[in-house]
Simulated assay, not measured.
Amino acid sequence: MAHNHSHSHHGDDANRSRLLAAFAVTALFMVAEVIGGVLSGSLALLADAGHMLTDTAALLMALMAMQFAQRKPNSRHTFGLLRLTTLAAFVNAIALLVITLLIVWEAVIRFYHPQPVEGGLMMGVAIAGLLANLLSFWLLHRGGGEKNLNVRAAALHVLGDLLGSVGAIAAALIIIFTGWTAADPILSVLVSLLILRSAWTLLRESLHELLEGSPQALDADKLARTLVSSIPEVRNVHHVHLWQVGEKPVITLHVQVIPPYDHDALLQRIHQFLHQHYQIEHATVQMEYQRCDTADCQLTLSTQQQHHSHHHH
């Protein structure tokens, strides 16, 4: 399929309309599953609706991220509002943990006091849910969404959700053929474990970003070492701060360099290095150098070395 991977508005709009369509389908069927779950008395359907809520939220956050990424930063929010999506992810994760607890709690009660479940209705709603998931997945997967992290994450969510619907269908089949209603709470617990997994991942990642943690793929110490070994003029790298806003890594660092022939060219090389090897577009580099011809400088150098060896022992 020929699709240009340029950062064109056309691609963004196509992504957005796909996300919007998938969001509408998922939200609609989430409501349908809640109603179906209440009418049929099936907890597994309610659990699957809870799982669909994780998708709806994931899709909504992907849409938000696209929206905020377009807003220009201003003097009050110099990074724009990209962190809002991270905050939304955090709140969403906590809400999902609460939903999981409620479902498990209800399942335990129902296991000891079985409730009548309308198997046929449950079956119909579960199959409809499965089809809705397939539709969302297809919507998200066609076109150039592979490059957009949010779209990819949302597609994974929807795929995980297929398992939830399959669980509800399995419970319905057991109830229709054997009349064993305990199958419903048991499978609802299994489905809520799926919710728990995505909630936990979301909580961990959003909290890491909110606490200014460095991006998962980047190691600040290793980056400093690589920079020293790759650019001969760079002697030492310190005060490295590495964090993430939205999906963009941001870095500030101090480099001690041998006084260069051309200051700007060296700075340019450092920036290029960070961009090529680490995809860091936003770097603030403070260059420091001291011409060492005075006795005073030799003194500071030797004390620095002593200080270092002192440090190591």
Score class of each variant (00 low, 15 high):
1 M>R: 09
2 A>V: 07
6 S>G: 08
19 L>D: 01
23 F>A: 04
25 V>I: 15
30 M>Y: 01
30 M>V: 01
32 A>I: 10
33 E>T: 06
41 G>L: 04
44 A>G: 07
47 A>D: 10
49 A>H: 14
50 G>D: 11
58 A>T: 10
65 A>S: 13
65 A>W: 01
69 A>M: 03
72 K>I: 07
72 K>H: 13
79 F>H: 11
85 T>N: 02
88 A>M: 02
92 N>M: 05
93 A>T: 04
98 V>G: 14
102 L>T: 14
108 V>M: 15
108 V>Q: 11
110 R>Q: 05
112 Y>L: 15
117 V>C: 07
117 V>Q: 07
130 L>M: 13
131 L>D: 10
132 A>I: 03
135 L>S: 14
138 W>V: 07
139 L>F: 10
144 G>T: 01
151 V>S: 00
155 A>I: 11
163 L>Q: 10
168 A>Q: 01
171 A>M: 00
175 I>R: 04
178 T>S: 15
180 W>E: 10
184 D>H: 04
191 V>I: 15
200 W>K: 12
203 L>N: 02
208 H>V: 13
214 S>A: 15
217 A>I: 12
231 I>E: 02
232 P>Q: 13
233 E>C: 00
233 E>H: 08
243 W>K: 06
249 P>R: 10
255 V>N: 05
258 I>R: 09
260 P>H: 05
270 I>Y: 01
277 H>D: 13
278 Y>N: 03
281 E>V: 13
286 Q>T: 13
292 C>D: 11
293 D>G: 07
296 D>F: 13
300 T>V: 13
